[in-house]
C-alpha cells in the first residue's frame, strides 16, 4: 500500500507549488501514471481523498491519466505498444527494447484559485 506515501509526496508538491503561486484553493490536480508503474489508481485516489479531507485541500479532484507502455526496438527502430509485458519487437523479434513511455509518475498541472 505504497499509494499512501505517493499521495503524501503529491500533496507536498501541491502545497509547495500553491505557496509559490500565492493561491489558497485547489480545485483539481492532474497526474500521469505509467502502466508499468506499480500504482493502483483507485488506491491512490482513496488515499488522496482521505489525506485531504478535513484540510484546506478537501474536495480537490485528483485526475489520473494512464500512460500506455510503449517501446522502441534498438535493432529495427520500430515503435510499438508493449502488450502483456512481453519486451520483444513485433517486427524483428529482437528482445533489445528501450521503453519510451509507461513508467511515468508525474504531476502535470493543477487548477487553483
Amino acid at each position: 500500500m505504497h499509494e499512501m506515501s505517493i499521495a503524501q509526496s503529491l500533496i507536498d508538491i501541491v502545497r509547495d507549488e500553491m505557496g509559490k503561486h500565492g493561491v489558497t484553493v485547489l480545485k483539481s490536480v492532474r497526474i500521469q501514471i505509467g502502466q508499468l508503474s506499480a500504482i493502483v489508481p483507485d488506491s491512490l485516489s482513496f488515499c488522496f481523498n482521505i489525506m485531504t479531507s478535513g484540510t484546506d485541500l478537501e474536495g480537490a479532484e485528483l485526475m489520473m491519466e494512464i500512460i500506455p507502455l510503449r517501446g522502441v526496438c534498438k535493432t529495427c527502430k520500430v515503435e510499438f505498444e508493449i502488450k502483456d509485458y512481453a519486451f520483444e519487437c513485433p517486427e524483428c523479434g529482437s528482445p533489445k527494447i528501450d521503453t519510451i513511455s509507461g513508467q511515468e509518475l508525474s504531476i502535470l498541472d493543477m487548477e487553483v484559485e
Binding site: 509526496s9 503529491l10 508538491i13 493561491v23 509518475l105 508525474s106 504531476i107
Partner: peptide, 14 residues
C-alpha cells in the same frame, strides 16, 4: 487558474 507543474511525484525521494 491553471498552474503547470511537470514534476516527478517521487522527486523528493529521488
Amino acid at each position: 487558474m491553471k498552474v503547470s507543474v511537470v514534476k516527478n511525484i517521487l522527486a523528493a525521494n529521488d
